[in-house]
Design a protein around this nucleic acid. Structure first.
Length: 548
RNA sequence: GGCCCCUUCGUCCAGUGGUUAGGACGCGGCCCUUUCACGGCUGAAACACGGGUUCGAAUCCCGUAGGGGUCACCA
C-alpha cells in the first residue's frame, strides 16, 4: 500500500516540524495557552469566559496567549464569524498575543493559526502514524457505519468503531489497494492500543486526578476531505504550537483517553489540562448549558447591545472563575481588575448558573468606581452604535454631559444607579432641553395631581430668588423657610404630628420642584442638579411652570 | 444503557474532623434622608439521602438519588 496516496498533502518529516516549531524560550513557569473557537456563527459568552481564564493565566505567568481558528468543518462554517470573534475579544481586552489579529493578518511564529491552512502539517503527522502502523485507512461508508451502530444497538454492546467492529482495521494491503483503485473515499483512523482493563489518569489542574478506561476506539483522525478531526488537530497543534496548558470545556473530558493515546503514540509529552465547567442556566427543574438558540444572553453580542460596561462583564466572569475575586475587589476598590491573579485551583468543579441580578450588582459597583469622564466616554461609544438620538444630545455639550454624570459621584459614597448605558437616556434625559420638552406633558399631569400642594406663587418666588452661589445647606434652609410660608411643614415628622395644619411637608415641596425641573419625581440631589442645570435653565423651567 | 463528572442558603462562593456553618447577590424589616440611589443595622434562607469510620463528620469511606457530559468523517 502506498502511504503517500493516503496523505497527499504531507510534506514534512516529524524532525522537520520539530525544527520548524521549536520549543518556546520562555521563563520558568510561563504558561502558553490558547483559545480555539470554531467559526460557526457567533461568539458564545463561554468563549469569552475561557479566553479570560486562558489569557490571564498566560499573562500573569509571563507566557503567551494565542488564538487558533478551528475551522476544519467547512460545512458548518459561517462567513464573518472570525471577524466577530476578533472584535469580541478586542472589545473585552482579550486580544491574543499570537494568531489572527485582523483579516488575513497573523502574529507569531507558530502559524498558520487557522487549522484549515495546516493540512500539510496534520497529514505529515498522519503519514508518520501510518508508517508506524498506528493508523490505517477506512473505506466504510456512512451507511455501513450506521448499520454497524444499529447492529450494536440490537446486540446491546458498546457502540463505536473498535475491536472486531473495526472492519477495516485488519484489511490486507490488497483490499486497501483495491478500494483505492475504484476511488472509494476514505478516512484515516487511529489504531487504538487500549486494552480492556487498562486505565489512564488525567491530572486535571482543576479537578485533580481523574481516571478513565484507556481508549479502544479507532477514532477518525483524517476525514474524507483530508481535514483533521478535532482530536488529531488538537494533539498536533498543541504540540507544535507548544501549548503548556489546554483550557477547555468539560465536554472534552470523555475524549481525553483518545488524546492521551495520540500524544503517546506520537512520542510527545502532553500539556497540562484544565477542564472548566460551562456557564449554565436554570431551565425548569434542572440546569443546562446556555444555548445560542434559547438564550440571548449566551451571545457576547447581547452584553454589548444591552450596554453593559465592559468591565462589568469581565468582573462578573472573574467572580465565577475565582471566588476570591469578590473579596479582593472589596479590599482593592478602584484598582484595575487586571491586577487580580486568578488560580485555576480555585475554579469551581460544578457549572455556575448565570445570574443576571448578580451581573447587575457587579455592574453597579463597576460604574460606581468610574469617573464621570470614563462613564461619558464609554456610554458615548455605546450610544453612537445603539442609540444615535441620545448620542447626538449627549455629545453636543461634553462638559454639560459630564457634569450631569458627576452628580453625587465624587464623594466617598458615589451613586450606584447605573447598571447599563441603555438606561441613561431615560435616567438623565430631562437634563437636555429637547428631551425635557418631550416629557413636559406627562410632567404637567403629575404636577396637577400634586395639587393643591403645588402653589405656583412659590415657584415664582424660587425662580426669582434662585442664587446658585448659595451652598447646599444654605439653599435648603432658605427653601425650607419659604415652604413654611406656603404651608409646608419643615419635615415629615412635624407634618405627621399635625397633618391638618400643613398642605404637605418639605419632601413634598422638593417633589414639586423635581417634577417642574426634571419632569419626574426621582432625581439626584436637588441642589446639585440645579447647579449643573445652570441658573438660566432652572429659572426658565420654573417660570414656565408658573403657568401650568 | 456503558463510561465519566458534579452535589453547602434561591444564586455565586468560604469552609479540608470540633464553627452559634461565614460572606456576596437577591428578598424582608429598621435607620439615615429633599425623592431616588448610596450607606448602616437586622431578619428569613443551605451541608441531597442512607449507611459506616470516629469521642466527634459539611469535611474521610461505601452505597443511593438527582443533575450534567460523552459515546459523529461537529467542534
Amino acid at each position: 500500500m502506498d502511504i503517500a496516496t493516503l496523505t497527499p498533502e504531507a510534506q514534512f518529516t516529524l524532525a522537520e516540524l520539530e525544527a520548524k516549531f521549536p520549543p518556546r524560550t520562555l521563563s520558568e513557569g510561563a504558561r502558553v495557552t490558547r483559545f480555539g473557537p470554531s467559526p460557526t456563527g457567533f461568539m458564545h459568552i463561554g468563549g469569552l469566559y475561557t479566553s479570560l481564564v486562558s489569557r490571564r493565566l498566560a499573562h500573569q505567568s509571563g507566557g503567551r496567549f494565542f488564538l487558533r481558528i478551528e475551522d476544519t468543518d467547512k460545512k458548518r462554517e459561517v462567513d464573518g464569524t472570525v471577524g466577530l470573534i476578533l472584535a469580541s475579544l478586542a472589545t473585552y481586552g482579550l486580544s491574543p498575543d499570537e494568531g489572527e489579529i485582523a483579516d488575513g493578518q497573523e502574529l507569531g511564529d507558530y502559524g498558520p493559526y487557522r487549522q484549515s491552512e495546516r493540512k500539510p502539517i496534520y497529514q505529515s503527522c498522519v503519514r508518520w502514524l501510518l508508517e508506524q502502523g498506528h493508523a490505517y485507512p477506512c473505506f466504510a461508508s456512512a451507511d455501513e457505519l450506521q448499520e454497524l451502530r444499529d447492529e450494536q444497538a440490537k446486540r446491546k454492546v458498546q457502540p463505536g468503531y473498535y475491536g472486531s467492529w473495526a472492519i477495516w482495521r485488519d484489511k490486507t494491503a490488497a483490499d486497501v489497494a483495491a478500494a483505492l483503485a475504484v476511488g472509494l473515499p476514505f478516512t484515516v483512523r487511529l489504531r487504538a492500543t487500549g486494552t480492556r482493563d487498562e486505565r489512564v489518569t488525567l491530572p486535571d489542574t482543576i479537578r485533580g486526578d481523574l481516571e478513565f478506561p484507556a481508549n479502544q476506539t479507532d477514532v477518525v483522525m483524517l476525514k474524507a476531505d483530508g481535514m483533521p478531526t478535532y482530536h488529531l488537530a488538537h494533539v498536533v497543534d498543541d504540540h507544535f504550537m507548544r501549548t503548556t496548558d489546554v483550557i477547555r470545556g468539560n465536554e472534552w473530558l470523555a475524549s481525553y483517553p483518545m488524546h492521551a493515546q495520540m500524544f503517546d503514540l506520537m512520542g510527545w509529552a502532553p500539556p497540562r489540562f484544565a477542564h472548566i465547567s460551562p456557564i449554565e442556566k436554570q431551565d425548569g427543574g434542572s440546569r443546562r448549558k446556555l444555548s445560542k438558540r434559547h438564550d440571548p444572553e449566551a451571545s457576547v453580542g447581547w452584553y454589548m447591545e444591552a450596554g453593559y460596561p465592559l468591565g462589568a462583564v469581565t468582573e462578573y466572569l472573574l467572580n465565577l472563575i475565582d471566588g476570591r475575586f469578590e473579596e479582593w475587589r472589596t479590599a482593592n476598590p478602584g484598582v484595575s481588575h487586571e491586577d487580580f491573579k486568578i488560580e485555576l485551583e480555585h475554579m469551581s468543579r460544578s457549572g455556575a448558573l448565570f445570574d443576571l441580578a448578580k451581573l447587575d450588582s457587579v455592574s453597579r459597583d463597576v460604574v460606581g468606581a468610574m469617573s464621570a469622564k470614563a462613564i461619558y466616554d464609554a456610554a458615548l461609544v455605546w450610544a453612537s452604535g445603539h442609540h444615535p438620538d441620545f448620542a447626538v444630545r449627549f455629545a453636543a455639550d461634553p462638559a454639560y454631559s459630564q457634569a450631569i454624570l458627576d452628580i453625587e459621584r465624587h464623594g466617598e459614597r458615589p451613586r450606584k444607579d447605573i447598571v447599563r448605558w441603555d438606561q441613561l437616556h431615560t435616567d438623565i434625559g430631562y437634563f437636555f432641553d429637547d428631551r425635557y420638552a418631550e416629557l413636559l406633558g406627562e410632567a404637567q399631569d403629575v404636577f396637577k395631581a400634586l395639587q393643591p400642594a403645588a402653589p405656583q406663587g412659590l415657584l415664582a418666588k424660587v425662580a426669582a430668588a434662585y442664587d446658585p452661589a448659595k451652598d447646599r445647606d444654605q439653599w435648603l434652609e432658605w427653601l425650607r423657610e419659604l415652604g413654611l410660608e406656603f404651608g409646608y411643614a419643615p419635615n415629615a415628622k412635624t407634618f405627621k404630628a399635625a397633618p391638618d395644619q400643613y398642605i404637605g411637608h418639605f419632601g413634598d415641596l422638593a417633589g414639586v420642584l423635581r417634577v417642574v425641573l426634571a419632569a419626574r419625581r426621582n432625581t439626584p440631589d436637588l441642589h446639585e442638579m440645579m447647579q449643573v442645570m445652570g441658573k438660566d435653565r432652572v429659572v426658565a423651567r420654573l417660570s414656565a411652570a408658573t403657568r401650568w
